[in-house]
Amino acid sequence: MKILIFLSLLGLKLAAAVTHSLKYFYYASSQIPNIPEFVAVGLVDGVQVVYYDSETRKAKPKQDWISRTTGPQYWERETGRFSGAQQAFKANIEAAKQRFNQTGGVHIFQTVYGCEWDEGSTEVSGIYQFGYDGEVFISFDLEEQTWISARQQAVITKHKWDSQAISAQKKNYLTQVCPDWLKRYLSDGRSSLLRTVLPSVSLLQKTPSSPVSCHATGFYPDRVSMFWRKDGEEIHEDVDHGEILPNHDGTFQMRVDLKLSSVKPEDWSRYDCVFQISGVKKDVITKLDKAVIRTKWGKTEIKSNESSMGMMIYIIIAVVVLLVLTGVIGFIIYRKKNVKPLPSPANSSEVMEQLNPKT
Rank of each mutant, 00 (worst) to 15 (best):
N34S: 06
G218N: 07
T146H: 02
E76W: 08
G279A: 06
I285C: 10
T19G: 04
A40Y: 10
T122A: 04
S8L: 15
V49N: 12
F227D: 10
F89V: 02
S163G: 15
R270F: 05
E144F: 00
V197Q: 11
S348I: 04
E237A: 08
S344E: 02
I127Q: 05
K287H: 13
K264D: 10
G46Q: 14
T69K: 13
M309H: 13
A154G: 12
E123T: 13
N34F: 01
A165Y: 03
A96F: 12
H20E: 08
Q48P: 06
E76T: 13
D45C: 07
A168C: 10
V112H: 07
K282L: 13
Q205V: 01
V351R: 09
T69V: 11
G189F: 01
V44P: 02
K2R: 10
F130P: 02
P33M: 05
I156W: 04
S21Q: 04
M226V: 14
S125F: 02
I313S: 14
F109N: 04
K158E: 15
Q153Y: 11
L204N: 08
L7G: 08
Y271N: 09
S213H: 04
V239S: 05
S149F: 08
T175P: 03
Q73V: 14
A88I: 02
V124H: 00
Q164E: 15
Y220W: 10
E233G: 06
E78Y: 14
T326C: 12
A168T: 14
L204D: 04
S213A: 12
K290A: 06
I316M: 12
M254Y: 05
Q153W: 03
Q102S: 08
S30K: 14
T251Q: 12
G232I: 09
S349A: 07
F6I: 09
P345R: 02
E301V: 05
A40K: 13
Y220C: 08
V49A: 05
F109S: 09
Q31G: 04
D272R: 04
F6W: 09
D257I: 00
F89G: 01
L186W: 10
T157M: 15
S278W: 13
H236Q: 13
W147P: 03
H236A: 03
Q176E: 08
T122S: 08
E143H: 00
E143M: 04
D118E: 12
P72T: 10
Y52T: 02
S8G: 15
K183E: 11
S210D: 12
T196G: 01
H248C: 00
Y113R: 10
T295A: 03
K58H: 01
I333F: 05
A17P: 03
R270D: 13
S348A: 12
R255G: 06
C178I: 05
K170A: 06
S167H: 03
V41L: 01
L288G: 11
G11S: 13
V39P: 00
R99P: 01
Y314L: 11
Y51H: 07
A165R: 09
G71W: 12
E78F: 03
Y113N: 07
N347P: 01
